[in-house]
Each structure stands twice: as C-alpha cells, then as structure tokens.
C-alpha cells in the first residue's frame, strides 16, 4: 500500500470552530446530566441540571450537524482524495472496534456473574463459604430470587426468547439484508432501489425499537423485571438497553442517509457516509445476535 506511488492531495482543513463548540456542548451535556442525576437521587423535585443538559445537547447536536454538513460539502467540492477516504474507512473501523470493546465489558460482566458468582453465592468453590451470609438463597439463572430480596426484589418470571425477541431477531437480520440490497442498488446506480431499500431498513429499525419498548413496558408492568430486580434485571436491561440505544443511533443515521439519497447524494464510488452507516448497522446486528443467544436463549 505504502509503495503505491500515486500522489494524491491530502486535505487539511484550516482553523475550525466546530471542535470547540462540540467540546462545550459535550461538557454541558454531561455536566447537566450529572447535576440532574444527583438531584434525582437526592429526591429533588426539579433540577436546573435538566436545562443545562438540554442546552448542552442542543449545542452538541447543532455542532455535529454543522460538522457533518461541512464534511459533505467538502466532499462535494472534491477536496477529498482516495487516501482521505481510506482514512475515514480506518477511522470508522477502529471506532466500531471501540464499541465492540464497550459491549465486551458488559458481556464479560454477564459471563462472570453466571459462571462464577452464582455458584459462589450458593456455596460452591473457593468463595463458597459466602453462603453463610445468605442462608436462604437458592441459586438459579435467570436469577429470579436474589440473595437479599428486600433490596433487590427479583422478578416474577424471566424474559422468554421465542416470542417477541425472536421477531426482533428476524427483523434485525432482515434489515441487515435490506441495507445490503440498498448498497447493491447504489453500486448499480439504481437510485430508486437505493431509496426504497433504505426506507425499508429504516422502517425495520423503527419497528424493532417499538417492539423493544413494548417488551420493556411488559417487563416493568407485568413481570416485575426491572433495573432494580437484581443482577438478572441489571444485565438484561443494561445489555439490551445499550443495544437499543445503538439501534436508535443507527436508525437515525440510516434516516439521514435516506434523506441524502433522496437529495441525490452518493455515487457508486463515492458513498463513504452510507457505507459507514451500513457497517455500523451490521455491527449493531451482530451484537443483537450475541444478545439473543446469551441473554435471551441461554438466559431463560
């Protein structure tokens, strides 16, 4: 690669206001959120944190919008070379890798709890004497009865895998295909196809999110399965919740790509934004499959 002697231009943007606004935005967002959470936990009725958070979110959102717009503009102005695009490709791949590691922390936690902690609490292994602290605890997974039911009430039942979650699995897998169809259409310069398949993908994403929201509602109201239900609820909601957040972002990104396609952006050899979104979407899909296996199937 490095020996390829084609000389290309490498665009170095000049002074930019974007990063400093993005920094302020992200700072206000987390500062406000922190304030808000502290007030919430302290039992306050309302909190200025909410407003700081909202303001920060607006600044950050606005800046990112401007940022991406200028990137798109620069691209249209033909400032980017193939080499630039390779930079973007690498950057997006490593970003996705960092996301993988973020999820690994939570999956790792789940495995550790299931393989080690549950038996320990039940009196096995080298931390087995721990059961003297929890004489009434009966081990099980999903952990419906916790060692300390007063603080962590546990759930009435576990989330099954073969109802709604199966549907969601099918939806996400399908959407991975549809986004690929969209890509194929783009490669053939078939704009109609691109737009249609993208729209289908976005729709599938939205449906997934609706079903997920319904599932959460059901869990909270009917099953006693909450964040506070003990480690089963904890891992269930944290893993599926972070995944859901990523689906939300992914769907939003796809939606932007849809709008851009309608506006006539992207060419078969110039569609990095679209491709990056598609990779992200595949990544979200793969995480779901891991979730489906480890949280739903093996978890119930």
């Amino acid at each position: 690669m490095a020996n390829d002697a084609t000389y290309e231009t490498y665009y170095v943007p000049h002074d930019s206001k974007l990063p400093i606004f993005a920094s302020m935005g992200i700072f206000l967002t987390v500062f406000g959120l922190g304030h808000w959470l502290n007030d919430m936990t302290a039992g306050a009725e309302s909190s200025v944190g909410t407003w700081i958070f909202a303001a920060g979110g607006l600044v950050l959102g606005g800046t990112l919008f401007a940022w991406f717009s200028s990137v798109i503009e620069e691209n249209h102005a033909k400032l980017y070379s193939q080499q630039m695009n390779r930079s973007f490709v690498w950057a997006m791949s490593w970003f996705i890798f960092s996301e993988v590691m973020f999820f690994s922390a939570f999956f790792g936690g789940l495995f550790y709890i299931r393989m080690f902690v549950v038996p320990w609490l039940a009196g096995e292994g080298n931390r087995g004497p721990s059961d003297m602290l929890w004489p009434d605890y009966v081990p099980s997974w999903p952990m419906l009865n916790t060692p300390d039911p007063e603080r962590f009430p546990g759930a009435h039942e576990a989330m099954g895998a073969w109802g709604l979650p199966l549907w969601n699995t099918l939806i996400l897998i399908t959407s991975s295909f549809t986004v690929t169809f969209a890509h194929k259409a783009l490669e053939k310069n078939n704009r109609q196809g691109l737009i249609m398949w993208l729209a289908v993908t976005v729709a599938l994403g939205v449906v997934f999110l609706f079903l997920q929201a319904y599932e959460y509602h059901h869990a909270y109201t009917e099953m006693g399965l909450t964040l506070n239900a003990g480690i089963y609820g904890t891992t269930f909601f944290m893993l599926t919740g972070f995944h859901g957040a990523h689906v939300t972002i992914g769907t939003f990104m796809l939606f932007i790509m849809l709008l851009r396609s309608i506006k006539g952006h992207f060419k078969h050899d110039d569609c990095f934004g679209f491709e990056a979104t598609a990779w992200y979407w595949h990544f979200v899909d793969v995480v779901w499959i891991a979730l489906f296996v480890f949280v739903y199937i093996l978890g119930s």
Partner: peptide
C-alpha cells in the same frame, strides 16, 4: 478505554438506578 467507560457506567447505574452490578445482595459482586 471503552472498558473503562463500561465500568464507570456500571457504577453510574448502581448509584442512580438501583442496579446490582456490585452488590452481592442482588447477585452482583
């Protein structure tokens, strides 16, 4: 770094949302 982000997020949830990552009473550790 994402793993560090993960672990502080677990703390955040334990502190503000009643999760049980680090409480034996809820099955955590």
């Amino acid at each position: 770094m994402p793993v560090l982000a993960g672990v502080v997020t677990m703390m955040l949830m334990d502190i503000h949302f009643g999760t049980a990552f680090f409480s034996a009473g809820g099955g955590g550790d």
